[in-house]
Design a protein around this nucleic acid. Sequence first.
DNA 1: AAATAATATATCAGTTTGATACATTTGTCA
DNA 2: TGACAAATGTATCAAACTGATATATTATTT
Lengths: 209, 209
Amino acid sequence: MSEKEKCISCKKCNQKCPMDLKGADRRMANSKKMDYVLLGLLSHEPMTGYEMKKRLDTTLRFFWGGSYGSIYPTLNQLETEGKVTKEDTSSNGREKISYSITESGKETLKEWLKKPAEKDELRYETLLKLFFGNENGFEGAKEHIDCFEEKCRNELVVLNMFAENLMQYLENDTHKYYYLTVQFGIKTYEAYLDWCKEAKEQMKEWEKK
Amino acid sequence: MSEKEKCISCKKCNQKCPMDLKGADRRMANSKKMDYVLLGLLSHEPMTGYEMKKRLDTTLRFFWGGSYGSIYPTLNQLETEGKVTKEDTSSNGREKISYSITESGKETLKEWLKKPAEKDELRYETLLKLFFGNENGFEGAKEHIDCFEEKCRNELVVLNMFAENLMQYLENDTHKYYYLTVQFGIKTYEAYLDWCKEAKEQMKEWEKK
DNA sequence: AAATAATATATCAGTTTGATACATTTGTCA
DNA sequence: TGACAAATGTATCAAACTGATATATTATTT
């Protein structure tokens, strides 16, 4: 039995990976990323912590996330390190702190930008439920795919709006990079939709037999 | 100025999201997922913790991960809850514990499989570096894309091998679902490569002007 | 026979999440 | 105008997970 013929997914078929993955460098340093995310946002313009959260939920939502629980503590840490400065812009009773990036902060950001990306990852619960779907049958699998398909369609609507909207601001340099990431989102969601269709067709084939 | 004309990426252009995202249900319950991952793996066949880690690094690597730090504690917890059973299969001095799923564990897995997926997410450091790339210039952006492109090509080689290998085992039901996830991986990595090419072309256009 | 790789369990500090608490300001509509 | 809802804003916490590392044995290569 050659390496290629060995099954890679269970012991019964003599489980063996057909390729050496030891150098595949998944799971690298889990170094703190929030620093760079916040410095990056502040490199565009000064803003509050609340606003950074909003950016993460709208502009960056297709490829990165973040919660208050890491935003505010990180901002304080960055201030201690002299990489951002606070400015109290409270009006009346409402607390409001506007953050700006310092030269030192810009330096830190630039250094990070020069280094290659450590880790890109997907964490698709839909795929997880599909992979273990044997206990759930084709019907269950189809439901998960339908649900995923709908989400993708919704995301595509948003992304296409973003792209259209951005067209008017492409003379702004920072927006060029934003545009590229939006195109990435569009390309991937279109691929997902494509896969949804094919996967359901494949299951129909299997059901016939 | 209509909603559509407002810029969604900075304050200068009167930042406003062209779409209401409040109901977009990003960031839902961060409930423990490792339970289900391990139960899912054990629903295929009994194995050790070490082997589960290996599966995560090979078979599931394209859409899910996991570390020893959550595998072993979760296995102990699952045993306490009666959802898996331990069997000591040590030989001589080497400790070896084989885990099996119980009826109760299968029930838990099935219930989870029936519920819709809570959250699918991308965490692409490459896109992050690209988005903040203004500080780094087109040259820097291209380097990140080249690096990403190479990773994608490598992943595609592995995935195509997986697909080819799996063809021989498609009569095995659980492998059908595995096959679908591999197809997902292939589709998405192909889309990524497509985007890499277009993004670099786009940047060339911008450079001309 | 020695060195290296693979198997195997286990723990820990550091990072992030999702939820929630609390308070004020703005917008809506009756 | 006044009441109510939504948006703005800061902050913290338990629970989850990662990446690294420690430790030890067995299998494979040189």
